[in-house]
């Protein structure tokens, strides 16, 4: 499995962005990104340049769109244009079905942004009758995401849904409109893709659908759970019988530094790993050794999901630096 840093929420002049696809991908390359998803508002015309831009920059471009509707903004990936203009506030399920039928996935963009008339349709107001239809939620939006108020609510929404037993992925999205020298940094969404797979709409959709994601301001945070001689990775499901459910689990966390100079906070500043779950925080501790490891054995019953979070100093502020998507547990 290789973990590729992506930016999943971008715009160009085909909607209201000011940088061209080429300008954006050049800067994406400088940021160390393997790929971007082009998610212009309500159009897919910008993809016309994507082959040429990928050839020039080496940055993969995944087709997407941001449904910029009256009742919410919804990101789609891996699907062509799907109709949204005939949908009312109770009809989003019908719209999502259109995207799924075309092989795409959907994510709620910035659910707690200010809505109309300040930012038209930016606050999610669609009625969701079946959360299983939602593939991902953009819980970190814009630059310096862990410091933004509206993201705290989105992160809580995601956690509440996980606690209810839904398996929904979490992503970051810069909502990238211009390539300037913004000192405020954006997060990476690392996607776990099999070594043999090319970076394509198919492999990106697959990684998100299977929950193989780590969201980070730089370093790649990964963890595994050892259960019955097997190691389970991010996004995987540990199935246990009633008896096995009580057995202790070993959690191994690892961290790889980003090779981007301004992203190497962990080398110098305080940091710790927090393991959290539907039962709340399970344990925490420092990363140690040259290869930044953390290991702990936990005994907890009734676990539905477990994720790792990296907490430390970012530009002198104490904040979450990275978090993984969960490993899930179920009993049978």
């Amino acid at each position: 499995m290789k973990w590729h840093p992506f930016e999943l929420h971008t715009h160009t002049p085909h909607s209201d962005g000011t940088h061209t696809l080429l300008e954006m991908c050049k800067q994406a390359k400088e940021l160390g990104l393997s790929g971007i998803a082009l998610t212009d508002h309500n159009t897919v015309s910008g993809l016309i340049d994507s082959d040429e831009v990928t050839k020039e920059t080496g940055v993969a471009i995944i087709p997407g769109m941001e449904w910029t509707t009256f009742y919410g903004h919804m990101l789609t990936l891996g699907a062509p244009y799907c109709e949204w203009r005939d949908l009312g506030p109770a009809d989003i399920g019908k719209g999502i079905e259109r995207v799924h039928q075309k092989g795409g996935i959907v994510g709620i963009a910035h659910p707690y942004s200010m809505g109309s008339p300040i930012c038209t349709g930016c606050h999610w107001e669609y009625e969701i009758t079946d959360w299983n239809q939602i593939d991902y939620i953009e819980v970190w939006h814009e630059t310096m995401p862990s410091l933004r108020n509206h993201n705290a609510q989105a992160f809580r929404l995601w956690t509440d849904l996980l606690n209810q037993g839904f398996r929904i992925a979490a992503t970051a999205g810069r909502d990238w409109h211009r390539s300037d020298n913004d000192k405020n940094l954006a997060a990476y969404t690392y996607l776990g893709i099999e070594d043999s797979e090319p970076l394509s709409a198919l492999s990106v959709v697959d990684a998100i659908s299977r929950g193989r994601l780590c969201i980070s301001m730089g370093p790649l945070l990964l963890f595994k759970i050892l259960s019955d001689q097997r190691a389970y990775g991010i996004g995987e499901v540990i199935g246990r019988t009633g008896e096995e459910r009580k057995r202790a689990l070993t959690i191994n966390v690892s961290l790889q530094q980003a090779n981007i100079p301004e992203r190497q906070w962990i080398a110098t500043e305080a940091h710790s790993v927090i393991i959290e779950s539907n039962q709340g925080e399970l344990c925490r501790g420092p990363l140690s050794g040259e290869d930044f490891q953390f290991s702990e054995t936990i005994e907890a019953d009734n676990l539905l999901w477990v994720r790792a979070r990296l907490y430390g100093l970012q530009e002198g502020l104490l904040a979450t630096l990275a978090f993984t998507n969960p490993i899930y547990l179920e009993s049978h």
Binding site: T12, P13, H14, S15, D16, D40, H41, N42, T43, V44, S45, G46, T68
Partner: peptide
């Protein structure tokens, strides 16, 4: 296609081999 942007005055051309952004 569509033109989701703010200017209050807009002009677009659609043709066989090219089109305005959006």
């Amino acid at each position: 296609g569509s033109a989701h942007r703010h200017p209050e005055k807009q002009s677009y051309l659609l043709a066989t081999s090219s089109a305005s952004p959006g």
